[in-house]
């Protein structure tokens, strides 16, 4: 538990001192969102119809942008190896890294959702559903992305590879989350989607750190 808190604290501190790594994906997200009206046309009805998909794809891409750095600095300064060699559980360490990644990339994206919804003319029900769905899914994104980050940590440039490895794993949550927003806009019940997304979140919380820890063992065991 000490390891968990210490790791999260350290990551937050490091990123507060050098905020650009945290801010870049957020800027990227807003820029991508604002490019769509320029490409498609400013007609509100059309934008509203495709808004959930646009916001979600942009959120996935923004999350993946920050994914590459999840274990990189720890790998390069050797602390990853120390963790693996120490008696501390790698599973807990992975969970701590995922939590700090979520706090630094998932949560800010959730807070940006109303802005994105405003730009794309989503109505109130849609905004709530969009924010709620991202709140439920972004931890899953960090968990699954951690697997890709750990697998590619030993490679000099793993950024694009992480995207290729992790994108197919994001398909179910993308499908469910956009459907949830559309259902909310249509005025129907969304509680079923919430249960589904929670189930996926808990499932990946149990399984993904195992795979990530195994991948870290491989990367440090050279």
């Amino acid at each position: 538990m000490n390891l968990f808190i210490a790791s999260v604290r350290r990551d937050l501190l490091v990123h507060f001192r050098h905020p650009s790594e945290v801010l870049n994906p957020l800027v990227f997200f807003v820029v991508v969102i604002s490019l769509f009206p320029l490409g498609i046309g400013p007609e509100p009805g059309q934008l509203k119809a495709i808004a959930p998909g646009i916001v979600w794809v942009a959120a996935l891409l923004a999350t993946l942008m920050s994914m590459d750095s999840m274990f990189r600095s720890d790998f390069e300064d050797g602390s990853l190896e120390q963790i693996v060699l120490s008696e501390q559980s790698t599973f807990i360490f992975v969970l701590a890294k995922v939590v700090s990644h979520w706090l630094l990339s998932g949560l800010p994206l959730v807070l940006l959702m109303p802005l994105a919804a405003l730009l794309l003319f989503l109505d109130e029900a849609g905004v709530w559903a969009l924010t709620l769905s991202l709140l439920l899914v972004s931890p899953t994104l960090s968990l699954l992305g951690g697997i890709g980050a750990a697998l590619t940590v030993g490679l000099p440039r793993g950024g694009l590879l992480v995207t290729i490895l992790v994108m197919p794993l994001y398909v179910p949550v993308l499908v469910l989350a956009t459907a949830m927003v559309q259902a909310a806009e249509a005025g129907s019940d969304t509680i079923g989607y919430v249960y589904w997304l929670l189930a996926i979140l808990f499932g990946s919380m149990c399984l993904a750190p195992i795979a990530t820890a195994a991948a870290i063992n491989v990367a440090t065991d050279q």
């Binding site: 697997i147 795979a211 195994a214 491989v218 065991d221 050279q222």
Partner: peptide, 16 residues
């Protein structure tokens, strides 16, 4: 040619 390539790919295949 990296040492852990087989295990890394095996982990990815299982995740998939």
């Amino acid at each position: 040619r990296q040492a852990g390539v087989g295990r890394a790919c095996a982990i990815l295949a299982l995740v998939g």
